[in-house]
């Protein structure tokens, strides 16, 4: 990892109201627990890919009633209303970022890699896990690398730069207008890069 890139990302993400952390794979769960406790997160939702990619095993450190996993193993019987009601009870989501862009302090999320997507926009808190190989210097580099994954872009992608916010009342900044109020990025410094 280039420490400078992380430093730049960290500063810019923080300036946008986001909360960046870096840790090692062995301490990832401890760090997650600290973040979740600090944000008073009671009901958690994990993306299955985040669990497998970063070996999180929530069942080992969380009571069964306090977390769920998305997508559920059998999406049969999917019901829009039930799904929304369920999501409105979630305090924090643990997901992954596909790129971190140092120039702007943004996390890029490719929607096809996150089956279902409402969980990214509705709950008040979101933690995005990332590996060092996902850090890029600038927007052009991110878009260049994105173009190499064109088969995954059918559903689009979103750049997230800090929490949802508004300054529509007398230019006073208020976080969490419609989307998450707390947005964390947790970089796992020694996460392996693909093929390496």
């Amino acid at each position: 990892m280039t420490p400078n890139l992380w430093e730049q990302f960290r500063r810019h993400f923080q300036e946008a109201g986001g909360q960046p952390y870096a840790t090692s794979a062995t301490k990832a769960v401890d760090m997650l627990q600290t973040i979740i406790a600090g944000a008073n997160g009671k009901q958690l939702l994990f993306e299955a890919s985040a669990i497998s990619e970063f070996s999180l095993h929530p069942e080992a450190w969380l009571p069964e009633s306090s977390f769920s996993i998305t997508p559920a193993p059998t999406p049969k019987g999917w019901d829009r209303k039930r799904r929304l009601e369920r999501l409105l009870t979630v305090d924090m989501v643990v997901s992954t970022a596909d790129f971190l862009i140092a120039e702007t302090g943004s996390a890029l999320v490719i929607l096809q890699k996150h089956p279902g997507q409402w969980h990214l926009w509705l709950p008040p808190g979101i933690i995005l896990l990332a590996a060092p190989h996902q850090l890029v210097d600038s927007l052009p580099t991110a878009f260049h690398r994105l173009a190499q994954q064109s088969s995954l872009l059918q559903q689009g992608y979103v750049l997230l730069t800090g929490p949802s916010k508004t300054a529509d009342i007398e230019k006073r900044l208020v976080m969490g207008m419609h989307g998450p109020r707390m947005v964390y990025v947790l970089l796992i410094e020694d996460a392996p890069s693909p093929g390496g």
């Binding site: 999917w78 799904r83 059918q154 559903q155 730069t161 949802s164 916010k165």
Partner: peptide, 24 residues
């Protein structure tokens, strides 16, 4: 527009989402 490096959300949208996760 706002003096931000990037706004909080930049959405690049595609077509309707295929099932079985029709969250869109």
């Amino acid at each position: 527009a706002t003096g931000q490096r990037l706004t909080a959300y930049v959405s690049v949208t595609g077509g309707p989402l295929p099932s079985p996760f029709p969250e869109g």
